[in-house]
């Protein structure tokens, strides 16, 4: 049993890393990894929202869509839930914790359009997770996302002082780096 959970979490974080293996949520992966601070801020915001949205979408799927036979509306419903949730979280955080809002504030609206959040919500349903698995999977996936973000930010901070040919500077080299990190993660694909 413990072995199962260990493999489940390890798979979500590393073996099936959401960014590097599934290629979901690549906009922030390239957009906000130019500095470690913003990468950490984005990661924290993503972990927070991912767990909430994963759980809410799962509940909505089981309670409404499945019972009414409206599975085909999944995409539409999940997008609505995620967009509403992010707005709600932003308002609550701004009121309850101004300090947290200053740290996460600018990243929260960006999350609305983060493919990872939606991807995880759908994967939870598609892989037939029960409630506990949904919570753990959402959390572990977001941790995997953070791991990839931190690795990328670390490498890109080094790139700032490296001599880079003009034609590769910026996004091109970012994409090449992302591909290389992805390849190294593929080496673990056999574990699960």
């Amino acid at each position: 049993m413990q072995q199962d959970w260990f493999m489940f979490i390890l798979s979500a974080i590393i073996v099936n890393n959401i960014l590097l293996i599934r290629f979901l949520g690549n906009c922030p992966f390239l957009g906000v990894t130019t500095a470690m601070d913003s990468a950490l801020g984005m990661s924290a915001a993503c972990i927070f929202v991912n767990v909430l949205s994963g759980v809410l979408c799962w509940i909505f799927q089981k309670a409404v869509l499945d019972t009414l036979g409206l599975e085909y509306l999944q995409t539409l419903a999940f997008i609505l839930i995620i967009a509403g949730l992010v707005q709600f979280v932003e308002m609550v955080v701004q009121k309850v914790s101004p300090a947290l809002y200053r740290a996460l504030g600018i990243y929260l609206p960006l999350i609305t359009t983060n493919c990872m959040i939606f991807g995880v919500a759908v994967l939870n349903i598609r892989e037939d997770h029960d409630f506990i698995h949904t919570v753990v999977y959402s959390l572990a996936t977001a941790l995997g996302f953070s791991l990839a973000m931190v690795i990328m930010a670390g490498i890109r901070e080094r790139m700032l002082i490296a001599r880079i040919p003009k034609l590769l500077d910026g996004v091109p080299l970012g994409l090449i780096t992302a591909g290389m990190i992805g390849l190294t993660f593929y080496a673990l694909a056999g574990i699960s």
């Binding site: 909505f60 409404v64 869509l65 009414l68 409206l70 509306l73 539409l76 419903a77 609505l80 839930i81 509403g84 707005q87 709600f88 308002m91």
Partner: peptide, 14 residues
């Protein structure tokens, strides 16, 4: 009805 209710519910909450 389901999507309308979801939309309405979310807008009320927001």
């Amino acid at each position: 009805a389901a999507m309308g209710a979801l939309g309405l519910g979310l807008s009320v909450v927001l």
